[in-house]
C-alpha cells in the first residue's frame, strides 16, 4: 500500500466573505511528484500555503503522516517552500541565503559548506556565492529560491511555479533536473504550475483545479485520455467542445449527424459535451467526409499545422502535418474511440 504523507480534508478558505477554496480534499502519496494545475486565481497558491502553514482555513484539517498538524506553526513543519515571488533575504548574499535553513538547524560549518556547494551545482549557480540578491536576474533568483529550499532535504517540498521566470530552454533543463532530484532524494514534491505540458511531463499525479474546486485527480495519461469534464479536457491540451445529445448507449448526435462512440451509461437524450482533440480529426476529400467544412485559417506551429475550419455552426480546430489552402472545402472524419462524451458541468463557468 502506498503511504499517504499529506492529507487535506474538507479545506474551506474565505477571503473577504468570498469562498476561495470550496471543500478541497487531497491525499498526497509519499515520494510522488504531484502537480496542482489550474488557471490563474483558481487557488493553487492558497492550497500550498495551507500545507506550508501560512494560510489558516475557515474549516478543514491537515494531516502529516496521519498526525493532525492543522495548528502547527510553519517553522515546526517538515516542509519547505519555493515561493512564487522568491522571497529571498535581501540582506544576505547567495551563499548565506542558501545556508540559512541549515544554520538555523545548527549543522556544522563543514556540513553546511558541502551541502550548499552541492546544491549550487544542482541549480547551476557555482561562482555566485558572494553575489548579492539584487545583482541577480529573475531566473537566477528563482534558482536560488529552489536551492534554498532544496538544501534542507525536507520530507515534502512545495514549489509554487518555480520555473515561471525561466526561458524555454533553461526551463526544460530545470524540469529534467528537478525531476531527477525528486527521484534521487525521494522527496515528495507538490508542484504548482499553470503550464499543462509541464504538468503532464513531470508528474506522477496531476490535480486539476478550477475556481477553488478540484476537477480531477489522476495520472497524466488518465487526465489526458479520460478527462472527467469539458473544463479538464479544454485545459489539458486543446479541445473542440461541441454540444451533443446522447441518443442511447454508443450513439451520439452532434453537428447535425449521428456518430458511433465508445461511451455508455448516460440517460436517454441527455445533453452532453462532446470533446474531440484537434489531432484526432482526419482530413479527407470532401465527398468522403462525414462532416464538411471550409478552411478559414492555417497557422504553422512547428511540428504541425493548425487549421480553423467552419462546419455546421462550429469553429473546429484541427492539427495535421499536412495543410489545406484557406477557403478550400474539406471533409472531416472522426473515429468512434476519439469521441469523448462528458456530462455537462453542473455549474457553467
Amino acid at each position: 500500500m502506498e503511504n499517504i504523507i499529506i492529507s487535506l480534508k474538507n479545506a474551506i478558505v474565505d477571503f473577504d466573505g468570498e469562498q476561495i477554496l470550496k471543500n478541497i480534499n487531497l491525499d498526497i502519496i509519499d515520494k510522488q511528484f504531484v502537480t496542482l494545475l489550474g488557471p490563474s486565481g483558481c487557488g493553487k497558491t492558497t492550497t500550498l500555503r495551507i500545507i506550508g502553514g501560512f494560510q489558516q482555513m475557515k474549516s478543514g484539517s491537515l494531516y502529516f503522516n496521519n498526525k493532525d498538524i492543522t495548528k502547527l506553526p510553519p517553522h515546526k513543519r517538515q516542509v519547505n517552500t519555493v515561493f512564487q515571488k522568491y522571497a529571498l533575504f535581501p540582506h544576505l548574499n547567495i551563499y548565506d541565503n542558501i545556508a540559512f535553513g541549515l544554520k538555523i538547524k545548527r549543522l556544522s560549518d563543514k556540513e553546511i559548506k558541502s551541502r550548499v556547494q552541492q546544491t549550487l551545482e544542482l541549480v547551476n549557480l557555482i561562482g555566485f556565492e558572494k553575489r548579492s540578491v539584487q545583482s541577480l536576474s529573475g531566473g537566477q533568483q528563482q534558482r536560488v529560491a529552489i536551492a534554498r529550499a532544496l538544501v534542507n532535504r525536507p520530507k515534502v517540498l512545495l514549489l509554487d511555479e518555480p520555473l515561471g521566470a525561466l526561458d524555454l530552454k533553461l526551463r526544460k533543463g530545470m524540469q529534467i533536473e528537478l525531476k531527477n532530484i525528486q527521484q534521487e532524494l525521494e522527496i515528495t514534491f507538490i508542484y504548482v504550475t499553470h503550464d499543462q505540458e509541464e504538468a503532464l511531463t513531470m508528474s506522477d499525479t496531476v490535480v486539476v483545479m478550477n475556481d477553488g474546486i478540484i476537477q480531477q485527480i489522476g495520472t497524466p495519461i488518465d487526465i489526458y485520455n479520460e478527462p472527467k469534464n469539458a473544463f479538464v479536457a479544454d485545459f489539458i491540451g486543446d479541445s473542440n467542445i461541441i454540444d451533443g445529445i446522447m441518443r442511447k448507449d454508443f450513439l451520439v448526435d452532434f453537428a447535425g449527424n449521428s456518430f458511433t462512440c465508445v461511451d455508455s451509461g448516460f440517460e436517454k437524450d441527455e445533453l452532453v459535451d462532446v470533446v474531440i482533440r484537434p489531432e484526432d480529426i482526419k482530413i479527407v476529400p470532401q465527398a468522403q467526409g462525414k462532416l464538411t467544412g471550409v478552411v478559414e485559417s492555417v497557422i504553422f506551429k512547428g511540428v504541425h499545422y493548425e487549421m480553423m475550419v467552419e462546419s455546421s455552426g462550429y469553429e473546429w480546430k484541427i492539427q495535421s502535418t499536412l495543410h489545406e489552402n484557406v477557403g478550400s472545402l474539406i471533409g472531416m472524419n472522426i473515429e468512434p474511440m476519439d469521441i469523448h462524451i462528458m456530462h455537462k458541468m453542473e455549474d457553467k463557468l
Binding site: 535581501p90 540582506h91 540559512f100 538555523i104
Partner: peptide, 26 residues
C-alpha cells in the same frame, strides 16, 4: 516584505530568530 518573514519561518525560524536574523538586520 511579509513573504520574506514567511520564508524565514518556512526555513525553521521561531519568533526570536525572525527578530534577530531578519527584522533587525533589515
Amino acid at each position: 516584505d511579509e513573504s520574506v518573514v514567511e520564508a524565514a519561518q518556512d526555513l525553521g525560524c521561531s519568533g526570536f530568530h525572525i527578530i534577530t536574523r531578519i527584522i533587525l538586520p533589515l
